[in-house]
Design a protein around this nucleic acid. Sequence first.
DNA 1: TTGTACGCGTTATCAA
DNA 2: TTGATAACGCGTACAA
Lengths: 332, 332
Amino acid sequence: MVATIHDVARVAGVGIGTVSRVINNNTSVKPGTRERVLAAINQLNYKPNPIARSMISKRTNSIGVIAPFFTRPFFMEVLQGVEVATASYGKELVLYNVRTDEQRDHCFSDLPMHRKVDGVLILSLSPDEAVAQNFRRVGLPVVLVDAYSPLLTSLVVNNKDGAYQAIQYLLRAGHQRIGFINGIIEGNFKFNQATDRLEGVRCALQEAGLSLSADLQEETAWSRLGGREAALRILTSAHRPSALFVASDIQAVGVLEAAKSLHIRVPEELAIIGFDGIEISELLGLTTMQQPMWQMGEQGIHKLIELIEDPLHAPELIWLNTTLIERATTSG
Amino acid sequence: MVATIHDVARVAGVGIGTVSRVINNNTSVKPGTRERVLAAINQLNYKPNPIARSMISKRTNSIGVIAPFFTRPFFMEVLQGVEVATASYGKELVLYNVRTDEQRDHCFSDLPMHRKVDGVLILSLSPDEAVAQNFRRVGLPVVLVDAYSPLLTSLVVNNKDGAYQAIQYLLRAGHQRIGFINGIIEGNFKFNQATDRLEGVRCALQEAGLSLSADLQEETAWSRLGGREAALRILTSAHRPSALFVASDIQAVGVLEAAKSLHIRVPEELAIIGFDGIEISELLGLTTMQQPMWQMGEQGIHKLIELIEDPLHAPELIWLNTTLIERATTSG
DNA sequence: TTGTACGCGTTATCAA
DNA sequence: TTGATAACGCGTACAA
């Protein structure tokens, strides 16, 4: 069997209170007895039972990450930052992947009840007001990354500005006919990636005296297939664009495939800009609007730890910016 | 505050024992009282405290995954299978990423002590005999995936055969001068990916009356850069090969880059076969020896659950096979 | 400075 | 069928 605090106390010839004090190097313990206790701990290879500990302390020393489809490249890259930061605090990482609304609601309602985790990082999922309220009510620290709630600390990327900059770049390169492939607009939250990117596109075009005509615009699944199909429609229309801005790199990969199958040369006949900056974009030489994914994860955890230390801290709204990475699918 | 079993008992006018019986629908409880208890549970929105539960039951309802650099594409794809299977059993997933030998040893020695997880899945890391012995001694269920120990249930891929098949394929396509870029051989375990793949290569060449000369062989980092540098050396040698077999897709991506920079046409002047079958290989049209990654994760969890149900079950050795996926970097 | 006793929220045992 | 009570392993007042 594995040693308990009682065994240590017995071997060291002290009370369990003293052992506990040594472990948590709390208040003063006479050097001599401390030595004896330490020796006993070593001899028995004693490790405090974390379960029993959290029973008292209400701390689990682990943090939870809720993400939809965390296996998508975007989340994976955020997760890297999350993992490194979490490990740096010596905390464990519990993954909650949600693939359905039901799983999401389950997470949102059950997790706060009994602390299996000390705090939660939520990726790309904006809880509604009731849920956010509940998090605050029970005092569970929560940080939103790539999502927004007025009641919770949120790290958001300036999607509108990112899209705006991408279009401006294309305009400056002389493009007049610019298409836009967006992802599906889900939910009706204030912070919505697709809506914001669309707004940025509209804004930039409008400033240039242009507008986004229906035949140059598609809203499709956030996937390679979605991107390919949308691109096939746009690129086979009567008067095809000379440039496409695509709301995600994954979709942009599909666009590249479509262009190839239609024998449209990139970037000579078609410039392409993606969004996200996932690893694949580099391999394919895709020009993209890069999100600071690693930083989103890392900073999210830092904020979460702050919140765990000080649960009453007021929610913050933190904006992060995107950066255009010029590669082979645009000609500068 | 959040309700406890005592609150429920009080509201329902019964003892806590009865409430516990209702929760675990154990033995007979009179329908009438069961109703009352259920009503109280509902009214108070009571959920049993998982921490207190595992205090008694010694079960945490969560499983741990130990992986080196889990953000590498290979692990990510295994992790997808792991995640789905874990969720299907209603268990939580705790991630232990190890980047250093120190972290690995820490995991191996601490995790077994006090069950923060009911079982552990270890990816691509072969614990030595003492560690494996210790896992068994304390009765912690462990499954190895892409790793091997005679003392632990192991799911291993037939690396030797995979490499053998790849070379055979190239030989059948008429290649006489075949190069091999391997990954670094780490550790000195019985199951070693790099060693086994090298052996498969040697075996196939030998059967064809050929051998692997030094100028056609490189051992380099499991990375894009490693692959690129190795390829540059091999492809600029006096008598360059007409085909390259590469021990991982990641490295093969580097090989593609090298070929491009040297203006060597693929597959006309150089055939390339990778290993792994990660998503990028599909995007780049890379012919590769596909590992059943998803299945490795999924089946690993199934085996682990079996072991958790029956901890004394003898260790099994399960072989998985690879499949050649023909794409654009070979010409059939 | 140190030991004892109590409580954390459950499950399990044992009378009743 | 049910209720009281003893664990589970630890932290911590409180008393010594």
